[in-house]
């Protein structure tokens, strides 16, 4: 029974992994479906709109991916933070924390499997959801270029690594899962607000979150993401270091 297996069991036995994969795959299948049939759905609801007419342009292929990204980076992000907090709050059960801490020389040995397994599960769920959305977009709306989708997925994964690192840092400087979720979500919500200022926004990790939608839509080219990707990489590393310092400092 290794610390790596402990984390895999945490994902499976607590059903957090199931929640994660269900949410991302569900959005992967529902996103393109919604984009394709939104007009039809509105027509069906016509009698209930009290005479108002809503006209939407015909759906194009990148709308399918945009729907997936919109859902994945909102509801999906909340689920991601909750799942990550459940794993990364080392001392959520203080007695279990003490049990583990007193059996390793460095707390890094506890933190590393949690970071890797948590990010691995989140990344896999996000990728499977994106692939499902890509497939269904092809089936319902038309094909998207692999040269846009695959870098978009990679940039989305980089953003999720940043989310996991943020949650890890929050977990070591607050007490309990709930406070970790609150602090992590709050700090993630601040990003788009600050990013509304375009000059700042193009440097922030949050701009990577929509790359999977924006690249196929030709809103930006890949070069646009070099700066935020570099900032995200550095910030993620710093946040993991902050988490490690916090975990070392904590007294039980």
């Amino acid at each position: 029974m290794s610390l790596w297996r402990l984390e895999l069991l945490r994902l499976t036995r607590t059903r957090r992994g199931l929640a994660l994969f269900t949410v991302y795959l569900l959005f992967g299948f529902i996103g393109p479906l919604t984009a394709r049939y939104l007009n039809d759905l509105l027509e069906l609801a016509g009698d209930d709109l009290e005479g108002a007419t809503i006209e939407l342009p015909d759906a194009v292929p990148h709308d399918g991916m945009a729907q997936y990204v919109a859902n994945a980076m909102q509801v999906g992000l909340v689920v991601t933070v909750v799942v990550a907090a459940g794993s990364l709050a080392l001392d959520a059960i203080p007695e279990m924390g003490a049990f583990l801490r007193t059996r390793v020389r460095s707390v890094w040995r506890l933190l590393l499997p949690r970071l890797v397994v948590t990010f691995g599960a989140i990344g896999l769920a996000f990728t499977l959801g994106a692939l499902a959305a890509w497939y269904e977009t092809w089936a319902l709306l038309g094909g998207l270029r692999a040269g846009d989708v695959l870098p978009g997925i990679a940039l989305g994964l980089l953003f999720l690594a940043y989310v996991v690192a943020t949650t890890a840092a929050a977990a070591q400087w607050t007490k309990g899962v709930l406070s970790t979720v609150m602090v992590a979500l709050l700090s993630l919500l601040v990003l788009p607000v600050v990013g509304a200022v375009d000059v700042i926004g193009q440097w922030l990790p949050s701009s990577l979150a929509t790359a999977l939608a924006d690249l196929p839509a030709d809103k930006h080219d890949l070069g646009h993401y070099v700066r935020p990707a570099a900032v995200t990489l550095v910030t993620t590393a710093v946040l993991i270091y902050v988490a490690l310092v916090g975990a070392r400092r904590r007294e039980l």
Binding site: M1, S2, L6, L9, T14, I93
Partner: peptide
């Protein structure tokens, strides 16, 4: 008052301690 992750079995708790020590 020892507490462990409730989804572990007793044997897994001891196996974890064994592997770490």
């Amino acid at each position: 008052a020892p507490r462990f992750d409730p989804w572990l079995t007793g044997r897994e708790v001891v196996a974890l301690a064994q592997q770490l020590t």
